[in-house]
Write a protein that binds this DNA or RNA. Structure first.
Length: 792
RNA sequence: GGGCGAUUAGCUCAGUUGGUUAGAGCGCUACGUUGACAUCGUAGAGGUCAGUGGUUCAAGUCCACUAUCGCCCACCA
């Protein structure tokens, strides 16, 4: 074998990936008695291709998995794909160029399964090409039978614990996707709209006139009230007008009724402190439902409900004569008619922030629908407490969780009126309004295809299957239970759970992290993992978010592997600090390539120089070598022990980036630029123990540095390790070898002082030569140095 | 409106519990092919650490305020 003059990354990386697979280097062994380190891998959403952001985030976690494996843990490293749910449905709809409801339930589900499978295989191939140490036997998807079964088990468990309920309630609704959604799935966007001022007549206003005052003025003042709105199309659903209780302009009107223009509906004028008197006219109409304030007023003041907007986003019969129109059409017509009727007093363009569905950008409506909810609002305090038991890296990300939980104001709506998801294991009884749950033995079950286990308690056997599917997060929030094989292998799960690590990006703290913590709390009263490792985002080279649709070779992961190699791409990913966003920077990838080359060349040289020593190593030989270490050897070995201690501490604190930087600095500057040059004389011309001391030192340094680099650059380190050290350590792979432990007997502060003096001497000599434009190889007649260290 | 981050060399970023002349890589300038490496090496130029005020013997680091940027949340009639 031996070292060729050049390292061919593409060939070597493929070769080692094949070797790792055939040697089952990363497979979890349940019979291994060492402590387990279980990782709750983030299953990427199947909604597009791999992008550089995935590489950034996943690689950082992968390097940590390698570190813990070398620390002696029995690493459980599964990999999942989140393919069930709306994101995948939207992706597939886009591909098919057809809406799900037009394709048909069964055909659409089949298409989703096909597309998911294809995308997941591509992802897996990519992660393998990046050298991921995943145990691919543990691959799962959130639509597979085990995931569906676990998810349905979760539902049944929560139902029995009284933590899930079905309610007819106002809830955010997407008219584009035609489904209910949860609070966590809402985004904000600005849109241009108009602020309309409408004139409402006051009912029976003449009866209110005080005969002692000027009649004409009084009548003008109180015969009408002006309200400002951005949603005139909701006028048919107006159920009240609100003013602020301290607003003297309207005080006299509170308790009376206004009449909606065009529709002539009498609605009460009510006072509520939630009204902002300075906004618009200070009087606002309450519709069912324009926003969450309307919902609050509707509840608190027990107002009637007019279901104006249909699930398709059109006006219902309650909007007659505008029934059947889309919201947009209705707005245009109603505004025009208001204008004609003289009820439109003002119209001003304005920019308004509206809530939209994060998946499609469509403004959300609030509809009263029948949905399943999980009671999270009651558990805020417990969920905050759970969050505090988890170690967050970086720590400040915990604050986001705290704020999200503290500010929750909806229970978690988990039902979706969609297709590609986990069905509810439930049949409804229309006779008594009760439900029949599936038996656990039936799971996973599709109630549309399977008969209920028994008739309803009321005797009715004609049950209606629940047609909905679960929110995708309702399933991915049990990823520790899915990945940990809770139902198939409870004994194993017992050992895996709570898991040690959840890596994920910061944008899904409010969803995946939160929901997983909630589920774990509800099911088991425990936290799901000990540590949360939160990654930042990769930013496009010019700054800003990576657009998934943009195909740019500077951010195309496959092209980057081809151009720089997996190790170099990993080097870039791991140079970004934990939790910090980082621009995609090809100069860092080039730096990674240089580091790989430098490692190769240094190893090639060291390998040659120590070849005649390696084979002699035995304890006697090693002992006498250590006794003959020179100042420079002792300097290098001593500072190496400090490096090991430092890098180990940094890895343990999830600061892989700092560990990498320190290791690189030591390797490049201390070892290559200086120590190697110092000992060349001894290596070439020295003899006996003097030479052996340098050989042993180089041997130790290279082996330890390879191990410190191994989590970030698994291929080049394996390549060198296999050539020089694998036989000696009797190890199949550097990645199964033991992480170095600092050897305190090698600490030598005096030698480090001498080393610093040697460095100063070296630098001075180089500066002197450079100033005279001499080659660094030029011989110097003599050197004197005013060193303050007389031990030289 | 509230919160969390960030602001350090032309660019991308490090700067640990406050401690001499603030670092790295890239880029730039000059030089050098020395028996691992030109995908290299050496040396150099380049920063009033966003601003103001404060605490301290000592502040890039701690505190307050301000500005700009990013993200999260709330409001959004």
């Amino acid at each position: 074998m031996g070292f060729s003059s050049r390292y061919h990354a593409a060939e070597a990386e493929r070769r080692w990936q094949t070797y790792w697979a055939s040697e089952r280097v990363y497979e979890f062994n349940p019979d291994d008695s060492r402590p387990i380190f279980a990782i709750d891998t983030p299953p990427p959403t199947v909604s597009g291709d791999i992008h550089i952001g995935h590489v950034y985030s996943y690689t950082q976690a992968e390097a940590m998995a390698r570190f813990w494996r070398m620390q002696g843990y029995n690493v459980y490293y599964p990999f999942g794909f989140d393919d069930n749910g709306l994101p995948t449905e939207r992706f597939v709809e886009k591909r098919l160029g057809q809406r799900a409801r037009d394709v048909g339930r069964d055909a659409f589900i089949a298409a989703c399964l096909d597309v998911s499978r294809e995308v997941e295989d591509r992802f897996e191939a990519f992660w393998k090409a990046l050298g991921f140490s995943v145990d691919w036997r543990l691959r799962y998807s959130t639509i597979d039978p085990n995931a569906r079964r676990t998810s349905q088990w979760s539902f049944l468990d929560l139902y029995r614990k009284g933590l899930v309920y079905r309610a007819q309630a106002p809830n955010p609704w997407c008219v584009e996707c035609q489904t209910a959604i949860a609070q966590a799935e809402m985004d904000d966007t600005d849109r241009e709209t108009a602020f309309y001022t409408l004139q409402f007549q006051i009912a029976d206003c003449r009866l209110q006139i005080n005969p002692d005052q000027d009649q004409s003025e009084m009548c003008n003042l109180q015969s009408a009230i002006q309200i400002a709105t951005t949603r005139p199309e909701l006028l048919p659903a107006c159920v009240a007008v609100f003013v602020h209780p301290d607003d003297s302009r309207y005080a006299a009107l509170v308790g009376h009724e206004a009449i909606t223009p065009l529709f002539g509906r009498r609605v009460p004028i009510l006072a509520d402190a939630a009204v902002d008197p300075s906004k618009g006219t200070g009087a606002v109409m309450c519709c069912t439902f324009g926003d969450t304030t309307d919902v609050m007023w509707w509840r608190e003041h027990q107002l009637p409900l007019i279901p104006l907007v249909t699930r398709q986003g059109r006006l219902s019969e309650d909007g007659s004569p505008y029934a059947g129109l889309t919201l947009r059409q209705a707005r245009e017509r109603i505004v025009a008619d208001l204008r004609e009727a003289g009820a439109l007093l003002d119209e001003q363009a304005t920019v308004q922030t509206v809530r939209v569905h994060e998946r499609c950008g469509t403004p959300l409506e609030i509809l009263e629908t029948s949905q399943w909810f999980i009671r999270v609002l009651d558990a805020k305090a417990a969920l905050l407490a759970a969050g505090r038991q988890i170690a967050w890296h970086p720590a400040h990300m915990h604050t986001r969780y705290e704020h999200w939980v503290s500010n929750l104001n909806w229970d978690w709506c988990i039902s979706r009126q969609r297709f590609f998801g986990v069905p509810f294991p439930v049949w409804h009884c229309d006779a008594c309004g009760g439900v029949v749950l599936a038996d656990e033995s039936q799971l996973p079950v599709d109630p549309m295809q399977t008969a209920p286990p028994h008739p309803c308690a009321c005797g009715n056997a004609d049950l209606r299957p629940d047609p909905d599917v679960m929110d995708t997060w309702a399933t991915s929030s049990v990823s520790p239970q899915i990945a940990g094989q809770m139902l198939d292998n409870p004994a194993l799960f017992e050992r895996l759970f709570p898991m040690q690590l959840r890596p994920q990006a910061h944008d899904i703290i409010r969803t995946w992290a939160f929901y997983t913590i909630a589920k774990s709390h509800f099911h088991f009263g425990t936290i799901p993992w000990e540590t949360l490792m939160i990654s930042g985002h990769a930013l496009a080279p010019a700054g800003g978010k990576i657009s998934k649709s943009k195909s740019n070779s500077a951010v195309d992961p496959a092209a980057l592997i081809e151009r720089y190699g997996a190790d170099a791409l990993r080097y870039w990913a791991c140079s970004g600090s934990i939790g910090a966003d980082q621009q995609v920077d090809e100069t860092l990838m080039k730096q990674g390539v240089r580091l790989v080359t430098k490692l190769w060349n240094a190893a090639r040289f060291i390998g040659l120089q120590i070849a005649d020593y390696i084979f002699q190593i035995d304890s006697d030989n090693q002992q006498s070598t250590i006794c003959n270490l020179q100042w420079s050897d002792r300097f290098l070995l001593s500072s190496l022990q400090r490096l090991v201690a430092q890098a180990t501490g940094q890895f343990r604190a999830y600061d892989y980036a700092a560990a990498l930087e320190a290791t690189e600095r030591f390797f490049w500057n201390t070892l290559c630029d200086n120590y190697l040059e110092w000992v060349k004389g001894r290596l070439y011309d020295g003899a006996g123990m003097e030479r052996a001391a340098a050989q042993w030192t180089l041997h130790q340094a290279l082996l330890i540095l390879l191990k410190l680099f191994a989590p970030v650059m698994p291929h080049i380190t394996e390549e060198i390790y296999q050539q020089l050290f694998a036989h000696e350590e009797s190890c199949r792979s550097i990645h199964l070898s033991a992480w170095p432990v600092p050897d305190d007997t090698l600490l030598d502060s005096e030698a480090e002082r001498v080393g610093m003096a040697l460095l100063a001497l070296t630098t001075a000599a180089r500066r002197w030569k450079t100033a005279r434009q001499l080659s660094l190889g030029a011989e110097l007649a003599q050197m004197t140095i005013a060193a303050d260290d007389d031990s030289l």
